Simulated scan of single mutants.
Amino acid sequence: MSTSDQQAPPRFAIPELLIGVGLLACAAAVAWQTLAIPVSPLYSKVGPRVFPYITMAGMVVLSLLLIVAALRGGWQPEEEKETPTDWKSMGFVVAGLVANLTLIHPLGFTAASVIMFVLVCYGFGSRRPLRDVLLGLILALAAYFGFAKALGVNIGAGFVENQLNTVINALIAMVRG
């Protein structure tokens, strides 16, 4: 067998390795923040740290799989590696995430989430902003009221949430008579 018939050993896939290491760093941040969650002695076996720990464990497993794949040459097919990065689209996605982080406190969860949703949709190629606003509003309200009403967790009430809570409370008061 000649050396030209042998395949070259796989080289490290640096971008994929950075993604795996970045995800591992995010898992470490989740662990650090989870340890900061106060636990009351009133909780039995399942407390407020359980789901963050499950999330962190999943992130660790996925990051290790990504790192192993990167060390074996990466997971991207060659034709994907040759495709140039669409920096404009990436900018809209990043702008959506930054907007959510900066606007959630002054505007509330719903408004910040809708803005993020529209920007991310635009980054992924959607050119139907009205549809994206409506879908984002439905998803954000479902998430907000799921956390606020079902779990009793305030994830950032703002003007939209306060107005809807006022309407809901008025309707409940009318029904109870």
Rank of each mutant, 00 (worst) to 15 (best):
G47E: 08
L134M: 13
D5R: 10
Q6D: 12
L71Q: 14
A27W: 02
A111Y: 02
P106E: 10
Q33K: 06
L24W: 10
V21E: 09
G158F: 02
L23Q: 09
G58R: 03
V167W: 12
A112W: 04
A150W: 11
L24F: 15
V93S: 02
Y43A: 15
D5G: 03
G146D: 02
W75M: 14
G158V: 03
S126I: 01
V68R: 15
F92L: 07
G108Y: 01
A69V: 05
Q7C: 07
E82W: 07
L24H: 09
T34R: 04
V114M: 01
F147C: 06
S44T: 12
G146Q: 02
V120E: 04
L134D: 06
P15Y: 12
N162S: 11
V133I: 13
G125D: 01
E161D: 05
E78W: 06
G136S: 01
A28N: 03
P106W: 07
L71T: 11
L66G: 09
V39W: 11
M116H: 03
A31V: 07
A28H: 00
Y43L: 08
Y122E: 10
G58Q: 09
S44Q: 14
M174G: 14
A142G: 12
A29T: 05
L71W: 15
S44F: 10
P10R: 11
G146E: 02
Y144E: 12
G125E: 00
L101I: 08
D5V: 07
I37G: 09
A170C: 06
A31S: 14
S63H: 07
T110W: 00
L64H: 08
T110F: 00
A69R: 15
V175G: 12
V61I: 13
T83N: 12
C26N: 04
L42C: 01
Q76H: 11
L139S: 02
G58I: 08
G136T: 00
A143K: 00
A69F: 02
A31F: 13
R176M: 13
I104E: 01
S113M: 08
G108K: 01
G156E: 01
V153C: 05
G125K: 00
V60L: 09
I37M: 03
E161W: 00
M56K: 08
V133M: 06
T85W: 08
N162C: 03
R72P: 10
R72H: 11
W87S: 14
I14H: 14
A111P: 05
F117N: 04
P77M: 03
V133Y: 05
A142K: 00
L65C: 14
V93I: 06
C26Y: 14
N154L: 09
L130T: 11
V175F: 08
L107Q: 10
A69I: 01
A29Y: 11
N154Y: 05
S4Q: 10
R131A: 14
A29D: 04
I104G: 02
G74F: 13
W32T: 05
P52N: 09
N169K: 06
A148E: 07
G177P: 03
V50G: 03
G91N: 00
I67M: 13
V46I: 15
V153Y: 05
Y43R: 15
G158E: 11
V118C: 07
A170G: 13
L135C: 12
L171M: 13
M174S: 14
L130H: 06
A95P: 03
A148Y: 10
L17A: 15
V120G: 02
